[in-house]
Design a binder for these strands. Sequence first.
DNA 1: TAGTTGACCGGAA
DNA 2: ATTCCGGCCAACT
Length: 85
Amino acid sequence: MKSFTETVRMVVQNIPKGSTMTYKDVAIKAGRPLAARAVANIMAKNFDGTVPCHRVIKSDGSLGGYNRGGEVIKRKLLMSEGAII
DNA sequence: TAGTTGACCGGAA
DNA sequence: ATTCCGGCCAACT
């Protein structure tokens, strides 16, 4: 059994290129449907450079945030991968 | 140990 | 449609 953080990282890495998932979806895949907030916290404080967190967005369709508020960078990355914003 | 924080979510006003 | 409130989870102080 891996820690919740490890599972979240795996899920985010498992996101296909050109696709996006909401924090909630990631939390669900990680096994904690109500831990969307925890997922955000993991990304925010313990961001992993090995995980494409720019593929994770809010449930409203907004990009939410990125490393230090670089939402613009996030949008550009997603569009560069073929994702539709 | 307890309290606060954060890139959130859903419902209510 | 926008704004406010409560709730949930993990990490930090």
